[in-house]
Amino acid sequence: MASSFAAAAVLLPCLPSTRSRRTTPISASASAKNETRTLSSLNSPHPIPSCFLVPRRNVIATVLSSFILSPQWCHEVAFAQPSTLFREHIDTFDGYTFLYPKSWIQVRGAGADVFFRDPFVLDENISVEISSPSSSRYKSVEDLGPPEVAAQKVLKQYLTEFMSTRLGVRRESNILTTSSRVADDGRVYYQVEVNIKSYASNNELAVMPQDRIPRLEWNRRYLSVLGVENKRLYELRLQSPENVFLEEEKDLRDVMESFRVLKTVD
């Protein structure tokens, strides 16, 4: 019975991990490239065919299935899991478009013009804010001043939104980078990155200061892309916990680069 099979392989048909991470980022101008690894053979005299591939970033396999296949079957059976790519959100009414991770879900009533969130890492999200058409007459994002001045305005807005009435809450903020770029649509866009940490006392009602020990509540990266069209200021906002940002920086920067403002029909 054993002699009738040329090779044996254990395949891992991985389900999405509990954090649903993307296997491969894409940009608006390039197609996805699968990043894969080859399963090692199990004492087989023949190497495992290259078609038996598992996405590199799928780190949790919740189902294990075993198959015994001969190498010549490779062209008939496909085992690679479809890549988790980006989707494009286009708002022709308000005039903007961007890419967002395919696994993220849209949340209604979040206050922004549009809001998407990672369903597993709730502190990771993307939104778009637009200035009122009746109160803004922007001609270019440069009306805000240089990127450094615009960054101060962005940070001030974040801190205003995160104001807390709780006792013992303290916020630390830092502008990390500012930049200006001309995109392929010929428009100028500003990019701003800030870090904000929130500290809170573990015993805010304590009488003695030494009994009110601050602890880190959260540590987040905020990335903004600013653009102007239709006499309005558009801001794409990305929020990510710092530890998640370090893991997904390439994907998040691709989202930033994808943001475009569009001319609307009056």
Rank of each mutant, 00 (worst) to 15 (best):
S3D: 11
S3T: 12
A6F: 01
L12H: 06
P13N: 12
T18I: 05
R19H: 10
T23C: 06
T24K: 03
P25W: 01
I26F: 05
I26V: 09
S27I: 02
A28G: 00
A30Q: 14
A30K: 12
S31T: 10
K33Y: 07
S40N: 07
S41L: 06
L42P: 04
N43I: 10
N43S: 10
S44T: 15
S44M: 06
S44I: 04
P47Y: 02
P47Q: 02
P47D: 03
C51A: 10
F52D: 00
P55F: 03
R57T: 12
I60R: 09
T62C: 05
S65Y: 05
S70C: 13
P71T: 05
W73T: 14
H75T: 08
V77T: 12
A78D: 12
A78M: 07
F79H: 05
Q81E: 13
P82S: 11
S83I: 14
S83L: 15
T84Q: 13
F86S: 09
F86M: 14
F86I: 01
F86Q: 05
D91A: 02
F93G: 00
Y96E: 02
Y100C: 02
Y100A: 02
K102E: 15
S103P: 03
W104T: 00
Q106R: 15
Q106P: 04
R108Q: 14
V114Y: 00
R117Y: 01
D118T: 06
P119H: 10
V121A: 08
D123W: 02
S127L: 06
S127M: 07
V128G: 01
S131W: 01
S132Y: 02
S132A: 08
P133G: 10
S140I: 05
L144R: 14
L144H: 09
L144I: 05
P147S: 04
E148M: 06
E148D: 13
V149D: 11
A150I: 08
A150N: 04
V154E: 06
Q157H: 13
Q157W: 02
T160S: 13
F162G: 00
F162A: 11
S164H: 05
S164W: 04
V169A: 04
R170F: 04
E172R: 13
T178N: 11
V182T: 15
V182E: 11
D184K: 15
D185Q: 06
R187A: 09
V194Y: 00
I196P: 01
K197S: 10
S201A: 07
S201P: 00
N203K: 10
E204C: 00
L205F: 08
M208D: 11
P209C: 00
D211L: 13
D211Q: 13
R212L: 02
I213R: 14
I213V: 15
I213A: 06
N219A: 01
N219S: 14
L223W: 03
V225P: 03
L226W: 06
V228F: 08
R232Q: 15
L233I: 07
L233S: 03
Y234T: 09
E235I: 14
E235V: 15
L236E: 04
R237G: 06
P241N: 04
E242A: 14
N243W: 08
F245W: 15
L246H: 13
L246S: 11
E247Q: 12
E248M: 07
E248S: 11
E249I: 03
L252R: 05
L252V: 04
M256S: 13
R260G: 01
K263I: 09
D266P: 10
